[in-house]
Design a protein around this nucleic acid. Structure first.
Lengths: 210, 210, 210, 210
DNA sequence: CATGAATGAGACTTCATTCAT
DNA sequence: TATGAATGAAGTCTCATTCAT
């Protein structure tokens, strides 16, 4: 359609604005999911929160479900990024896993709204869970390699890590946070995965990168 | 509201039927929650499923939310009953806890619809979680007493048990079940709580009562 | 559902009212179709015209299209009735056909709103056309039997009768009515079908029953 | 509105392209009317079909209705042209009329999409009908002059010709086409207009020009 | 108490139209 | 002029809730 279009820079001018609006809608939805169950958020609210007209939403998403899906994808991508970044320079799988669990809980402490939204979206969106899974699996296997872990079933271990991570975030959101919450959860998770108590404690308490 | 009601003897005749209808509605709602998110279940569907007219629902519940709440309460009560029953004749806290976790997962295997509904309701209903908590807390403390457990924080331990139990049920519902799923989850939970690996394995594999 | 229901009288009490409301909606829609193209009539208008709330429409029709369809069916049934009634005591096919054509045009003259709606619905609704077709076909064949008609193709003859009937109604609705409009159209139709001019004129001018 | 426009020579450069775009929009709309009722065609669809952006439509038409109107006008003009062309070298009114009716039906056979669109636009657009009327009227009168026709009312005759022509097109579009459909319709129309059966048959079967 | 028709608020979605680029 | 994002009115449809029977 664009006679002079060029595959390298398809994100010029209008595209930037378009992308900004789209992101604004996703952010707005996420903010609302912090306060309300996903199914209770009306698209008009999203539009208002994003400061656009109701119809504008439909220039970016064909249907309500697509909005939710987009939020899920955005979260999943963000998760993947976060975990990747955290892992840079950490060679041990068990340590990466500990760091990962702790960081999510610490972020929940720092931004409970974000955490609340995450919990709700994760509950609905199977896709987001499997995106996280890939990262965690790698750490689990590395942990096995390095002799830090020992468990009967990889998939169950995976579920346990995710469940406990989300559970920790939920505790924070619901005001049941305790001191060193992240460390304590990580320690228990490591023990569940077969790390010895002493090592688990030490691992869980290690200073976080950054 | 009850013109002549009186707390003692009004449980005759009509009352039995009344109670049956009410329970029928709650059961119907629970069946529907197995298939759909709570917010997506219309009261008319509940009425149809319970084989009463739409208006009848309002003879038992003032509002839609009350129906959901009642389902939550019913589940919580059932949980408490189940756990109490299981505990009869089991003197060890760690063993009771292991049995509890396993029984919930086994029930999920036997009745995935029930499990699906439970997962959804538990997600929404804070009250149901604290009801379970009471039972679990007792077991945790007994486990500490008997030297089987060792953890940094009771509340976190509690969250972990519940998270992993629900996580196990979710795995089953989503078709990620593995062999001896209940045993493997219980084993990991016990290790997280500080039980030694050998003892955790043995405890988790013990024959279930009944 | 109705324990004491009885197949003979399923239209008791509530049913009567239900039927009345339903008919009221169909009538309301028909009145509106007289003024506006079918696609331009909003269901809320129908509800207002029928003096019920907007939601009530959906207690009777699942979707907008079902309303239109119901109007089409109602019209088709009415047509069939009208034609049947007219045919009572008229033994000649050609005469029945002439009467039929004339009656529709006369009704258009008497009630142009009705005619306007009919023209619009007929345009959209294939079903209504085939309902009429059955009646007309019988008359065409009888006309052939009695030697009054002579044409190359039955289906084309059918189309012609319907087209000219509707065309006559349209002329009336659009204010192009002339004296003895019904008679003149009928006469031409009869000639088209192969009736001799003299006989056509006589047939078309015969006194109408009733 | 046209700053420097002037009825004579502004048809240079950009104007050609302008005219082409405008025509492209009209053609696009017509193609869409083949598939959907006029009221169900969105302007955005028209723009897409014409391969222009949605806003561009408004450089050529002030409003949606103007687009529909333009389609109607374009069709009417095309009709007039077609009929004029057909009439060249045909001196008899009755023959011209027969040719006209047949050509429309044959075109419907050759291009049912076009026919479908025509039927829909004709239904809505009174203007288009009167444009055709002028041409037909001339033929009717000529037919009277030459003694081929004999009918009670000119306006009714006109309606009949148009109704049957459109009816024939509709039959084709709806898949009820028969062999020599055009000839058979023409023959019946001629008889309706008072042509003797023998002459009607001969006239209707005459070879078409071109 | 049971019924189910009626209600109307509110959600979703579409689309003609405007306007900055 | 062309573009396409933004707008918001309007329509479709759902459903919790009320109420007469």
């Amino acid at each position: 359609m664009n006679k002079t279009a060029n595959a390298d820079e398809p994100l010029t001018r209008g595209h930037k604005k378009r992308e900004r609006t789209r992101q604004g809608l996703i952010d707005a939805a996420l903010r609302l999911f912090a306060r309300k169950e996903v199914g209770d958020v009306a698209l008009l609210e999203v539009a208002n929160e994003a400061e656009v007209a109701s119809g504008t939403v439909y220039n970016y998403f064909r249907t309500r479900d697509e909005v939710v899906e987009a939020v899920g994808l955005a979260l999943a991508d963000e998760f993947a990024d976060t975990i990747s970044t955290l892992s840079i320079g950490v060679d041990s799988g068990s340590r990466r896993l500990s760091i990962g669990v702790r960081m999510f809980i610490r972020r929940a402490i720092a931004d409970p709204d974000w955490a609340s939204a995450v919990i709700r979206v994760v509950h609905l969106d199977q896709a987001i869970r499997s995106k996280i899974a890939n990262q965690v699996l790698a750490d689990l296997r590395a942990g096995i390699e390095e002799g830090a872990f020992s468990y009967a079933d990889e998939n169950i271990a995976l579920d346990l890590v995710v469940s406990c991570g989300v559970g920790g975030m939920r505790a924070v959101v619901e005001g049941r946070q305790v001191e060193d919450h992240d460390i304590k959860v990580a320690e228990m998770v490591l023990k569940a995965l077969g790390t010895t108590p002493a090592r688990a404690r030490k691992l869980a308490q290690q200073k976080l990168p950054g």
